[in-house]
C-alpha cells in the first residue's frame, strides 16, 4: 500500500513536472509569438473613432479600420499652378569661385526627382573660354528665362512661364514634338524616349501623390520632356531646392528677387548687393533670353580646377542603381 501511495505520488509528481515543462515551453513560445504580433499592431489602439456618414449620422468605427488618406499635394493651393506664387520672382546665384565639381547637387537632384534616364537635369560643365583663360566648373540647370525660347515655340501650351518666374512643364499635355528642346540654347531639357520605369528601378512611391507640374519627375511620362523645375514642391514647404541644400561648398544661392534676398542655407544676403560686390552676370546674356540664374565669376578661387577632375565623368551624369 505504501508502495502504491509512493507510486501514485511519483506519478503525480512525474505528471506535474511534465505538465510544468510543457507549460513553460508553451509559455515561452506563446510570448514570442505574441511579441511578434504586438510589434506589427503596436500602433493600433482599441480606440473607436467617431465619424459622420454621408447622411449625417454619427457612427463609432474601430480606429484600425480607418485609413488616413494622405493630404493631396495641391489641396490647399492658394494659387493657380499655371500662374504661380504671387509676389515672388525666383532667382538663383551660382558662385563659380566655390564650385569644386563635388556633384552633390546632381546626385540630390537625381534623387529628388527620381531620374532614371541617362541625362541629369543638373549638369556641371568644364568651361574654358579660350586657351589663355583659366578653366572652371560651371553648374547649369534650366535658367527659367524671362523670355523663354522653349515656351514661345511650344504648340500646345505644355510648357509655360509663371508669374513667379518659374518655367514648368505639364506632362499630361506634352505631345513630344521636342521643339522646346531644339529651341533651348542651354541644352537643359531631357526627353523620356522610353518608359521611365521609376516605380520599378527607384522604388518611387506614388501613393497619395497627385502629379503636378510643381513636382517634375513624379512621375516622368514616356514621350514627354522634363527639366529642372526650381523645386516649387520644396518652396511650398519653405525649403530650398535640393541642389542648394546638397552643395557642401555653398555654391548655390536661391531666393526671391522681389525680396532682394538669396540664401545658400548658411549665408543670407541681399541679392543686388551680392551681384554688385562680386560682379555677377548671366550666361550668354547676348541671346536675350533673360535667364533667372546669375553667375559670380570664379575670382579668388578656393580650390584648383584640377581637384574637380577626379569626379568628372564625361559619359555619365545619372548614377544607376545596382
Amino acid at each position: 500500500m505504501k508502495n502504491n501511495k509512493t507510486n501514485s505520488r511519483r506519478k503525480f509528481l512525474d505528471k506535474g513536472l511534465k505538465l510544468g515543462l510543457v507549460t513553460a515551453i508553451g509559455g515561452i513560445g506563446l510570448s514570442k509569438i505574441t511579441s511578434k504580433l504586438n510589434a506589427t499592431t503596436e500602433n493600433s489602439s482599441e480606440d473607436k473613432i467617431e465619424l459622420m456618414t454621408t447622411d449625417g449620422t454619427l457612427v463609432q468605427v474601430d480606429s484600425t479600420e480607418v485609413i488616413v488618406e494622405k493630404k493631396s499635394q495641391d489641396h490647399d493651393k492658394k494659387y493657380n499652378v499655371r500662374e504661380g506664387m504671387p509676389n515672388r520672382k525666383f532667382v538663383m546665384v551660382v558662385d563659380l569661385a566655390k564650385c569644386k565639381n563635388a556633384l552633390k547637387c546632381q546626385i540630390a537632384c537625381n534623387k529628388g526627382h527620381y531620374i532614371t534616364g541617362d541625362n541629369a537635369w543638373m549638369k556641371v560643365y568644364e568651361m574654358q573660354e579660350s586657351k589663355e583663360t583659366a578653366p572652371y566648373w560651371m553648374p547649369m540647370t534650366c535658367q527659367h528665362c524671362d523670355q523663354p525660347a522653349c515656351v514661345t515655340v511650344c504648340p500646345v501650351d505644355a510648357t509655360f512661364k509663371r508669374r513667379d518666374g518659374l518655367v514648368l512643364i505639364d506632362n499630361e499635355r506634352c505631345i513630344g514634338c521636342r521643339f522646346c528642346m531644339a529651341a533651348c540654347p542651354y541644352s537643359t531639357r531631357v526627353f523620356n524616349w522610353g518608359e521611365p520605369g521609376q516605380e520599378i528601378t527607384l522604388n518611387m512611391n506614388m501613393e497619395g501623390h497627385i502629379p503636378s507640374p510643381e513636382h517634375a519627375g513624379m512621375p516622368s511620362i514616356k514621350g514627354t520632356v522634363d527639366k529642372c523645375d526650381f523645386c516649387p514642391h520644396m518652396i511650398d514647404k519653405n525649403k530650398l531646392p535640393h541642389c542648394v541644400t546638397a552643395c557642401p561648398n555653398g555654391v548655390f544661392y536661391f531666393g526671391d528677387k522681389y525680396e532682394d534676398t538669396v540664401t545658400n542655407g548658411e549665408e543670407t544676403l541681399r541679392f543686388k548687393k551680392l551681384l554688385k560686390d562680386k560682379a555677377g552676370y548671366r550666361f550668354m546674356e547676348g541671346l536675350g533670353t533673360e535667364p533667372s540664374v546669375y553667375y559670380l565669376p570664379p575670382v579668388d578661387r578656393l580650390v584648383d580646377f584640377e581637384d574637380g577632375l577626379d569626379k568628372y565623368n564625361k559619359y555619365q551624369s545619372v548614377e544607376k542603381p545596382e
Binding site: 509676389n87 520672382k89 501650351d157 509655360f160 512661364k161 508669374r163
Partner: peptide, 17 residues
C-alpha cells in the same frame, strides 16, 4: 513696396494662348 515686373499679364510671344 514690391512691384510685379513679370510679363505674365501681357501679350507676349511666350504667353499662353
Amino acid at each position: 513696396p514690391i512691384v510685379d515686373e513679370s510679363t505674365f499679364d501681357q501679350r507676349t510671344m511666350w504667353s499662353p494662348r
